[in-house]
Nucleic acid binder design. Structure first.
Lengths: 345, 345
DNA sequence: CTAGTTTCTGCAATCGTTTGCAGCGACTCG
DNA sequence: CGAGTCGCTGCAAACGATTGCAGAAACTAG
């Protein structure tokens, strides 16, 4: 296999030579910011030469000199979790439009792995970072911030309020699910919560308790937390919950996968949904309208979360002042067939 | 908001100074390849200094000098299509292990967009490219190749066999679906094909025809192609197909989404699945086991495709010889409840 | 004891940009 | 007509690494 010599990339110097000017002049002519210090005819010549030669600036050289790489890192726990792709796409849509490229990293929900990934991204001089990692701890992001890399959190918050976060409004979302069930006539409502060390898990559980308590009902012991946002733990938690509280006629799950697990546990226990027990999910994952029964769930605007996170990050990068601390996006309720009035109503 | 001065990054020169040597010596001591030309005590001192200062080389500077960025671009039509995340993760798993970072790009199945994305990635000096884009045309990849960037295709092929491809073996997969149906006693089997300008669409349709023809049955006019791999087009194609061939007792869909569309179309026509008509999908997307009825489908090892693509790309980057042209991965059949013997058997 | 190796380290160029500074010609104005 | 200003361009130094080359010890051998 012969090593074919590769078409040599055209550099700024080539353009300068072709236009009969010095490289620095060519640089200034090419850059809209500095273009006005160059005489009009020269600008035209340089532009023409650049176009003729098909010049594309070398981002490495530029980044080395300017300390701006026009890249943004986005790190997610697991791209295969269906809520992340829309989020990434939303971010990519706005970032791509501004000339940024996305570096992506998965963390597998592992603390060490997360630090390694964030480390390489910072080292690669990303201009900013979008973190959708799950852990509630905040040491990492403040550390990164102090190194000078702007950060935006997405789908989770941190105690340190120095870092902006774009999240779904879980209080509203859980409230909508509960109100929907109350409206159908349910009075005994339980909650299959997510892992409490994760902000979405803890937040939704708290929202559930508060909302029920606000109605003068007792909720505390009607919550069972799953180990993780997966079907299997969801099924276990649901079983435990129903065993302790056989009087429940409705279950609010903290997540669609937990709802799926709940569905399965109920099915295996011979309980019919929605005739005997109603179930709601959270997230409106793709295809939950195809399961049996189609899931009533709270729809979270993940794509828009990505869009807003990216916009916020852009403002941070540009050094704008007064970037909002935390933005909560309103969810909507999608009613399908996993909820119905309780038995005998 | 005061611009807090940022902790200055530690550079090779800092390390060199701390170790009392010249930067070039430090560089050699740090690089395992050249370490042996440096005396042992010096190596130790440099290593210690580097560790003490927390030195991380600047990839931009290195890339500028060496023309290796340790980045790989991966471009997919749409990250939200459920087969791509596992693929990306598979690739990331092996690439990350080798110190590479992934740059990701979506193309929206748009030709111009694709060229733009690939353009920026090449311009950013990625060491290689994994393309999962859908179009069958091959001008783009040969163009990129000629610029010197190694490419691996994934989930699709091209006519030019100079570029390696990792694909699922659709002939085998479709064959398994058809054989399964034949085994159940079906004799009138139709195919809802994907768009024929896409290699997976065209390939599966051809596989279907060939397989049926190989059995001496007539297949040609029992194929109806959908405009795109989505539910809606799938429903339309299925309706058209059933109208033309009401005698069909089984439909092989080229893709799970098309199968979902087919399911809906049949449901709306009052046809029961699987009692009246059996349906098979393709891909085994997440949660198709939860739909009604759980879908019998062909499982394609997408994660492994990503893994193999990455491995192949690594070999290409390292300049190894004899990298296989096209690898076909064997799928498996997952039998669920959307298939059953035809009525009266 | 000298000449020739070997081993190690430093010098300086290089990768492709950007940018502060200085110089040069043309123009303005008193 | 001379001094000051202005507009434009070039020079050269960065940015942070890598690497061919050469020089200085230290060592071997004759």
């Amino acid at each position: 296999m012969t090593e074919r010599p590769v078409t040599d990339r055209v550099t700024l110097i080539d353009v300068a030579r072709a236009a009969g000017v010095h490289a620095s002049t060519a640089s200034r002519a090419l850059n809209p910011e500095t273009r006005d210090v160059v005489s009009d005819p020269t600008v035209k010549r340089v532009l023409a030469a650049a176009k003729a030669l098909g010049y594309r600036p070398n981002p490495l050289a530029r980044g080395l000199r300017t300390d701006r790489t026009f890249t943004v890192g986005i790190v997610v726990p697991d791209l295969e979790t269906p809520l992340f792709p829309p989020l990434v796409r939303g971010a990519e849509a706005v970032l791509g439009g501004e000339g940024y490229t996305l570096l992506i990293g998965n963390t597998d929900n592992d603390r060490e792995h997360t630090e390694a990934v964030v480390g390489t991204l910072v080292e690669r001089r990303v201009d900013g970072l979008i973190l959708a990692t799950a852990e509630l701890d905040s040491a990492l992001e403040t550390a990164v911030q102090s190194e000078g890399t702007p950060i935006v959190l997405v789908n989770r918050e941190t105690k340190a309020d120095s870092v902006p976060a774009i999240v779904g409004d879980d209080r509203v979302g859980i409230g909508m699910a509960v109100d929907h069930l109350l409206g159908l006539g349910h009075e005994q409502i339980g909650h299959v919560a997510g892992p409490l060390r994760v902000s979405t898990g803890a937040g939704r559980a708290q929202a559930f308790r508060d909302h029920i308590a606000g109605l003068g009902l007792d909720a505390v012991e009607k919550v069972e937390a799953a180990d993780w946002f997966q079907m299997e733990p969801g099924a276990e938690a649901a079983s435990a919950l129903m065993e302790r509280h056989p009087e429940l006629t409705a279950i609010v799950a903290a997540n669609d996968l937990l709802a799926l697990g709940t569905l399965r546990a109920l099915h295996e226990a011979g309980v019919r949904v929605p005739e005997d027990v109603s179930v709601t999910g959270y997230n409106d994952m793709p295809f939950v309208d195809f399961i049996r029964p189609p899931l009533t769930t709270v729809r979270v605007p993940y794509r828009q979360m990505g869009v807003l996170a990216a916009r916020t990050l852009m403002r941070l990068i540009k050094g704008e002042d007064g970037v909002a601390a935390t933005v909560r996006l309103a969810p909507t309720l999608t009613v399908r067939q996993s909820t119905a009035p309780p038995p005998g109503k």
